[in-house]
């Protein structure tokens, strides 16, 4: 079942946000196909430490595909070649002996590189901070069953809410657009009764902040959907567009 791979890695190394980066090539032998991609990088880092070279910095945490911390453009594909898979869930069995693997950070003006493969994704937080919520203080909530939510709407809202905030949509989009990310949040609340009170302002504020962060616009290529590890559909973008249109027509001046 398990085999061993010899690999060539071309990895983006950059000391800090202000310094220039470059690709560096590494050779790695005896990588088990059972390993995850990040475990392969762990091995590389262990070897680098032994050689006295600073290990490659990369973001990761839960290693089970849910925290959204891991990123990486692997051979030009966000989170690597598998669909609906994060880098941490990508396994080396997907690669072949003597493959060359190019590893780059997410590239977007709104996601500046901090070091090596680590980028700053706090732009997403700032977008959330202007509207990614229902303004309900603790203590105000009515009984959970007081407002029925049709199952189909609840399911659809969850389809939107499963976004892990990894930024693969931005990384994969030729325009570095964040519309899938923002569209998912807007859609989640647009589909639920709880989101109605702030429906108009939410989409306007979140779109304004998204633009302020310097993301590009959507040209409906669907690359984001193909790259999204959570399987979020581009329908979310259209729903946001419609929400925005409605908000423009009926919203305050």
């Amino acid at each position: 079942m398990s085999a061993m791979l010899d690999l060539t890695l071309k990895i983006w190394r950059q000391d800090g946000p202000k310094t220039r980066g470059a690709f560096k090539t590494y050779h790695l032998k005896g990588i088990s196909t059972e390993m995850s991609f990040l475990e392969m990088l762990d091995i590389l880092n262990e070897q680098l430490i032994q050689l006295g070279e600073e290990p490659v910095a990369f973001d990761h945490d839960c290693r089970e595909g849910i925290c959204g911390m891991c990123s990486l453009m692997i051979n030009g594909q966000a989170h690597g070649p598998e669909t609906k898979t994060t880098t941490c869930q990508l396994h080396m069995r997907r690669f072949h002996n003597h493959d060359t693997i190019v590893i780059e950070p997410w590239r977007a003006r709104a996601f500046p590189v901090i070091r090596d493969l680590v980028v700053d994704r706090t732009a997403f937080d700032r977008i959330q901070a202007v509207g990614g919520f229902v303004s309900i203080n603790v203590g105000n909530a009515p009984d959970g069953n007081s407002v029925p939510v049709p199952k189909v709407n609840a399911d659809k809202a969850l389809d939107a809410a499963v976004c892990i905030g990894c930024g693969a949509c931005v990384a994969a989009c030729k325009n570095a657009s964040a519309t899938l990310f923002v569209g998912a949040k807007v859609s989640q609340f647009a589909l639920l009764p709880q989101g109605q009170a702030e429906r108009v302002q939410r989409v306007q504020k979140m779109v304004a902040q998204m633009d302020k962060e310097g993301f590009g616009s959507c040209t409906n290529t669907s690359e984001c959907e193909a790259a999204c590890p959570a399987g979020i559909s581009v329908e979310m973008i259209s729903r946001m567009n419609l929400e925005f249109l409605k908000a423009t027509v009926v919203g305050a001046t």
Binding site: N140, A141, D143, V147, P148, K151, A154, A161, L192, Q194
Partner: peptide, 16 residues
């Protein structure tokens, strides 16, 4: 109650 009010999309029955 609090989480439902926040818009957490819990699983629902067909009756909502």
């Amino acid at each position: 109650d609090q989480c439902v009010a926040q818009g957490v999309p819990f699983a629902r029955e067909y009756g909502g």
